[in-house]
Design a protein around this nucleic acid. Structure first.
Lengths: 212, 212, 212, 212
DNA sequence: CATGAATGAGTTTTCATTCAT
DNA sequence: AATGAATGAAAACTCATTCAT
């Protein structure tokens, strides 16, 4: 059974701070601080959180911000990677799990949590005009592929309906997690995720025409 | 059977132009033009579409804009109302329909269309920092209540599962329509809506423990 | 003899304020004020005079600056035109003068004055990275053509050496006026202009020690 | 006859690297590298070439830059000296030459070349707001004095007109070399230098149509 | 009333200079 | 002594809002 693949509540900044290969200790600390501050700023201030504010929260001059990220867009890209990468790992682990049936559903629940945390960043990305599906395409494609693999194995194990594809799963999970219910009404949100997962299980035998 | 509850493709600006009780003809025309222009601007330019641009598209000076809406936020509020009101009407009609079973599902499909069209506005609202659920709360509550009534009647008619509430339906429908799939992948979007509707139908007899 | 074709010391801002066809009175005043302030600012503060400062000197908000000139570069272009246009006029008048011999030399002396006043702008243009010879090419070409015409008529009248072209005259006049002697040492500057003009006169037969 | 007074194409950085009396070998190398890099940077990037860029081109950290030059202005001063000093030497050599007649003209042609190479630096100096004539005054005065001496000896030798002074020669040569014709139109530039030199030769008695 | 010019705070980004490693 | 990370004061430009015409 897949262990808590990704450190649950920890902002993924730390994980992604090691972007540059050879970075001085303080530089690495700053990079991480900026990523964390950005996370916080976008959550608190919305998608238009100014760079100055992010720098201030990271207790860093604007100059340092721009030394680490040549552009606000560069920061956003780094944040996307920082968020998506662990999800890809988790999805791959789930696909490789020897109990694929349970693994997918645990994966989906984990993804739900991670995606919810990703929302502010995604909004900022959208607001900044850059197209996630164009730029980070590679990135999000990799996630999709990994999830697809996990779904496929679950189907082979007979733990999932055959008539739904990644596209639908991604669309509905994505939509749900990008909406503000996740933040506003966690209880309702989790119930929705459950319903969604539930709907993916195979229709039991002897159920005449249950669902087309 | 529910007639075309809401004038389908027509932008809802015209409908809501009559906000003020006694407005001179040209004033009303201006208000409507601004609302329509705003609709277009947010769709084209994104949630940060500037006031100047909206005025320009409405073929109106900025001054006129501010005579009609004291604030950009006021415009957004008006747009929210303009979008939600027809949906409320539709929901009420569905609740009053004498074939409640079919009426809800038609309603939901109509809401899906309307909500998708509402997305640019909702994004602008979100970006502007104002909380829809605080400010326009009354408005969205009324929609929720109307939909709830329709759902209840459908349940009474045995056309819908008893174990899902408005909250879940709203959450999932809302999420789906506010996500960008609606615009990006209409086909996938419609399939998701179908799946969702489908999942609301009652579990047929002889289906042992199909879904909890 | 050509009268002082161009209002000598007056900054050419006023002359060029009428760039837009239909401009409100105050708007036109502002445009002129900005051009004048820019002239002053570049002279005083050097080629990197900030936009804010120009606006301040024009007693105008930055916003007004940017309403009048969408870009700092646009301001510079306008200033170039404002400076070059009168010179073109002067050159054409000189070419049309019925005493072409005297007209050219008066013209050159006038151009010397105008070009000296143009220097701060030219420096700002150069510093801003835009290429005068590419962008305003049309403009400076027109000046060159007009001067060429005047030179040609003077040659025909036997008042000028035949073995020098516009290119050389422009190069030397331009260089002299763009250098800082004009501002730093007016006396030396004028002597140099005289020498230059003097060198353009035809070499008289049998005139020993002709030039003073 | 004056030998190649100044090492023609070699950037004068090396020559001026020995500003400090006792500098360790690598320190001297750094200083020279920075001066050379600055030369290149100003030529390529214009008068506003940033310090970071100069350091980068010198393959040196900014810190090292500031260890060698306390200020960007200090660098500029050093560059001015590095350029002017060889010219002073050349002028002195010309003044001491035993064929003063030819020496001056060779000198002037050499100065033309050196001054043209000096332009980017001079522009940077001008853009930086520092006044060459105030700060480096001593320096440029020494050049002027040396040239004056050379001119005087040429006049004594009857090789030059008596009615022009250093001021005029300096003004015109300086202007010509600081203008962008030197870089843009070398052919025209050289013709202008020739004309200028030509104009300095004594007017022969009874020489009709003396100048080609 | 309508218009669009004016305003200025706020945004992203650059660069000379300082200072910890 | 060298390095390059950190700093923060500008600079160019945008946009919601006000106000003279």
């Amino acid at each position: 059974m897949p262990e808590p693949l990704v450190p649950p509540a920890v902002p993924p900044a730390a994980a992604a701070a090691d972007a540059g290969p050879h970075l001085r200790a303080d530089a690495r600390r700053n990079r991480a601080a900026i990523l964390a501050a950005a996370e916080e700023a976008f959550s608190t201030l919305g998608p238009d959180a100014p760079v100055d504010e992010i720098a201030r929260r990271a207790r860093v001059g604007v100059g340092t911000f721009y030394r680490n990220f040549p552009t606000k867009e560069a920061l956003l890209r780094a944040m996307v990677v920082a968020h998506i990468e662990p999800m890809v790992e988790a999805a791959r682990a789930a696909a490789a799990d020897d109990q694929p049936g349970e693994a997918v559903f645990t994966l989906l629940r984990n993804l739900a949590r991670e995606l919810s945390a990703f929302r502010p960043v995604a909004d900022a990305v959208a607001a900044s005009g850059m197209d996630v599906h164009a730029k980070g395409g590679a990135t999000s494609d990799r996630l999709l592929a990994a999830v697809d693999a996990a779904l496929t194995r679950a189907k082979q194990a007979g733990a999932m309906r055959l008539d739904v594809g990644v596209d639908e799963v991604a669309a509905m999970m994505g939509a749900l997690c990008m909406s503000d219910i996740a933040a506003r009404e966690p209880a309702t949100f989790h119930r929705c995720v459950d319903v969604l997962c539930d709907g993916l299980r195979p229709v039991r035998a002897g159920t005449p025409g249950a669902r087309p």
